[in-house]
Write a protein that binds this DNA or RNA. Structure first.
Lengths: 188, 188
DNA sequence: TCCGTGATGTCACTTAATGACATCACTGAC
DNA sequence: GTCAGTGATGTCATTAAGTGACATCACGGA
């Protein structure tokens, strides 16, 4: 028997998502989340930088995984093809638990502060991929554009997935959305 | 002589930008900003919803102007052409005061909270343009993609402008960036 | 003259967030 | 076996954001 229950971070994440969903983000205090799992607010802030961050653990791994995939794409691949490899890599991190992703998405879209945090996480994905593209020799401006375009595809496809039927294929949505982007931005 | 000095909101904006630039955003309290112009913190919060918002007044007009331009584009224009009209409209709101835009940009990029707020304003631009596109009969997914792609161009071009020489042309940068996007996303 | 209006101030309060210090079960060295 | 060290947690105090309730007070009109 351990001195403390194990997995404090995970328990805090679970309690936070549940309470945010039940009462709303603003109506939930950090003290409530913590006491829900037998901890104090002070401990919450040792695991998560702020009240929002508890919903975004693991986003650094997602970012690093996507950046690595961009870096590891075949040398012959153009910027968008490399970004596409990054999107492919994201599927391993998400796409697993539709119910959880969907609940989390509902909570986040219901609150402006949480949407802000999600947007900056997306921006950090774009930044990491852009940097990986630069290392591949892509000019900075093109790298930013390609990486940002990639996150647009990511966002649109992911949103369709979480708001759609649980048995839809995230990979298929991602591919289709990427195809639509090239169609829409095509010069005429 | 008026009972109060006029233009409280504008004075608060000026003091906030100056203090954020001088000491940093986190090292500046709302009480300091307010007392700087002879007001109290309570009054600050009557003009601005929170400490960040003081740097983003006028973004609603920008959004509405861009959405109106998208809506008013020629009926023959495709989604990206309509979005391009929206970008064109943004030039009237910005591009005027390079020094001010540059200072504001420095303050915002130096702080994560402010970047978050800027990102959600960008997202609201995209949402408004996407809705205008939907009204033009563009399918929802295509509308989101085109509008988001437009804000990517906007962001990249604007960032180049504020970080570049004061006499550079924002319209030229915007056009060139849009051209690069179509190039980068072109299928091969 | 008096009343309503509107911008501001004052006060009290909640909560997020952080630093300093205490606690206390476990671990390993002696 | 004892004892010092470690690490996760708790306690306490404090700053500052943000909000509601109510007071103030010059101005403009009836």
């Amino acid at each position: 028997m351990a001195r403390w229950q194990e997995g404090a971070a995970g328990r805090l994440q679970g309690a936070a998502l549940r309470l945010y969903a039940e009462r709303g983000y603003e109506q939930t205090t950090v003290a409530e989340i913590a006491s829900e799992v037998g901890l104090t607010a002070r401990t919450f802030f040792r695991y998560f930088a702020d009240k929002r961050e508890v919903l975004f653990a693991g986003s650094a791994q997602l970012r690093d995984g996507m950046a690595a995939a961009v870096a590891g794409a075949p040398a012959t691949a153009g910027p968008m093809a490399a970004v596409s490899a990054g999107l492919e890599a994201s599927l391993a991190f998400l796409g697993g638990d539709h119910a959880h992703s969907s609940a989390r998405h509902s909570v986040i879209t219901a609150n402006a502060e949480l949407r802000e945090r999600e947007l900056i996480k997306m921006a950090s994905l774009a930044e990491a991929m852009a940097e990986a593209l630069c290392r591949r020799g892509v000019p900075a401006a093109d790298a930013s554009l390609a990486a940002e375009a990639g996150t647009v595809v990511f966002r649109v496809a992911f949103e369709q997935w979480v708001t759609g039927p649980p048995d839809a294929s995230l990979p298929d949505l991602m591919h289709a959305t990427l195809a639509r982007l090239t169609e829409v931005t095509a010069p005429r």
